[in-house]
Amino acid sequence: MILTTQSLRKEVSSGEINLVILDDINFSLEEGKSLAITGPSGSGKSTLLGLLAGLDTSTSGDVYLDGVNLNNLNEEERAILRKDKVGFVFQSFELLPSLTALENVMLPSELKSEDDPKQLGEYFLERVGLIDRKNHYPNQLSGGEQQRVAIARAFACSAKILFADEPTGNLDPKNGKLISDLLFEVNSESDNALVIVTHDQELAELCDKKIELKLGKIVD
């Protein structure tokens, strides 16, 4: 299993009240498979994604990523795990505005001190069809193009698992379709597992597995 959760719970305190965001989340995902997490706004989807990817810590319960219990790691160790095994695609793209498309894609390889980040960056930009825009800055690209750069960056990580938070949420249906197709197409060429948080039922249907959250609990 690439990903397993056991009795995962997340609470946040708001003044004197403790809000339960996630409760008793149990599921697992095999290597190379895809999972869709769906649910209405505020149901805890992105919080769950944050916990699964080691961006945040749970109140109780465990997350095993590639056999490693994230709860046993501190922030620095989780960062190293993310560098080695995790890739991300965000709803709002989260590209660095001061870097060109190519430089954004090169970033994970640079962090891993790989030999030729440029070659790898160009390969993935080619793969998402944006090689001719490699020297453009994010503000010179459309939303769809920015998300394609983000996908190229996510795959340039050589990750074992890729997390996508509403990857088509900020795009029109046509561009959304393009991006989801691209995501699955590039993913099929690797052994990556894919976890997608989405409202888009069509996109969810493309995944091998689907869980639905409602008020912080799995309903399906």
């Binding site: 922030e75 960062a79 993310r82 560098k83 989260e94 660095l96 970033l107 962090l111």
Partner: peptide, 18 residues
């Protein structure tokens, strides 16, 4: 203000706080 966003992305992509 500009660095806050960059630090978050770098850390998400696996850069340690140190």
């Amino acid at each position: 203000d500009q660095r806050r966003h960059q630090a978050a992305i770098l850390r998400t992509l696996g850069a340690t706080s140190k």
